[in-house]
Amino acid sequence: MNAPGFAVQDLTVVLGRGTRAARVVRGVSWSVEAGQTLGVVGESGSGKSMTVLASAGLLPPPATVTGSALLGGRDLLKLSRRELEGIRGRRLGFVFQDPMTSLNPLLTVERQITEGIEEHLGATRRAARDRARELLETVGIADPDRRLDAYPHQLSGGMRQRVMIAIALSCEPDVLVADEPTTALDVTTQAQILDLVRERQERMGLAVVWISHDLAVVGGLADDVVVMYGGQVVEQAPVETLHGAPAHPYTRGLLGARPVLGKRRDRLTAIPGTPPDPRALPPGCVFFDRCPVKGDPRCGTEVPDLLEVGRRHYTRTFCPEDQ
């Protein structure tokens, strides 16, 4: 077995201080190996994006981050800002949800790709442009020379996302973090982006962390899936196990809320209520107020541990048997 490409251990993130402090990530641990894909799913506010941002040192003060984030045996949380700048973009590539807010509207596509190549790989301006042209061809952008001289607003949404992937892969990182990268794209473009990531992963041996609210996308891409709710991991399993035998009521609710091709439903199942306020978390199971089971007297008063219920299958509930 390969060493983990990227691993977070007991990661906790607190935003703010005093009575307004919000515990947005609480003791999260997961790992992904080289050549593998980890899907991280959950509703908005579950802590999935915050976990990877914190692990890469991308949260500004007054965020307090504890635990560890290991990349190649180095704990990113113990590195200086300068050391992190040498790792982000070089060994750790990012693709974010909205390329229009991630790309600089004042810089050409060429400059946004070549900047990291020159900084991290020491390439000349001409060599960096050649590399940028090659990357645009790789991600499926036609007429790359013309697109290199374009600005982000002159490209379609799908093309902008491909540029973001080109930037993320430009220095051949060990780990690619993709945070909701296909949410705003049409189905056809989304499928093309997924195929592109799979192809580059196979060629480069990338470890991929794919953050999404879409279980269908994750189901076709990931090897293992982490389900987050209320800042915690509530379930973790191989993708086939998670889809075939979900153990946590929240996971079952997410799966029940998705449309299934070929299966007719008059109405999709909804999870009632809203996620908890991280500044006022419940005393027991974090899903208690929305849970349809509530099958154990401890549910409202004790926080369940993350326990193994099958091979590489873990869940945080007192009622895993209630299917």
Rank of each mutant, 00 (worst) to 15 (best):
V163S: 08
D195S: 15
M159L: 13
T189K: 05
M159R: 10
D214H: 03
L194K: 09
L185F: 02
E172Y: 03
V209H: 11
L155K: 09
I165Y: 13
D179T: 01
L176K: 02
Q190R: 14
S156L: 09
I193D: 11
D214C: 09
Q161P: 11
E180N: 08
V177P: 00
A178P: 02
A178R: 01
A184L: 07
S212R: 03
L215Q: 04
L194Q: 12
T182L: 00
T188R: 03
G158V: 06
V217I: 15
E202P: 01
R160L: 00
G205S: 12
S156K: 08
R200N: 14
D214Y: 09
W210A: 08
T183E: 08
L169E: 05
A191L: 00
A191Y: 00
A168L: 06
A184Y: 01
G157T: 05
V187A: 14
V217K: 10
L155H: 05
D174W: 06
T182D: 10
G219K: 13
V218F: 12
L206T: 04
Q190A: 02
G157F: 11
C171Q: 11
A168E: 08
L194W: 14
V197E: 02
R162T: 07
L215V: 05
A168N: 03
M164T: 09
L221I: 14
C171V: 09
D179Y: 12
T188P: 07
G158L: 08
V187H: 13
P173D: 13
Q161L: 01
L155F: 06
V218N: 03
R162L: 03
G157D: 02
V217W: 14
S170K: 10
A191M: 00
G220L: 05
L196P: 06
V208H: 07
V197A: 03
V163Q: 02
L215R: 03
V177M: 15
E199R: 15
H213K: 02
A168P: 04
I165Q: 09
Q192W: 04
R198G: 07
C171D: 11
A168R: 01
S156F: 06
M204W: 14
Q190W: 00
Q190S: 06
A216V: 10
A166P: 09
P181G: 02
D174A: 13
Q192E: 11
V177C: 01
T183D: 10
H213G: 03
D214T: 04
P181C: 00
S212P: 13
I211G: 13
M204F: 15
V175D: 08
Q161H: 12
R203E: 15
L196S: 10
A168S: 07
E199Y: 01
E202K: 15
A166K: 10
L215S: 00
L176I: 01
A166W: 03
D195A: 08
R162S: 00
A178E: 02
Q201S: 06
I165W: 13
A207C: 13
A216P: 00
Q192G: 02
G158C: 12
R198V: 14
D174P: 01
L176G: 06
P181M: 01
T182E: 07
E202G: 15
R160A: 09
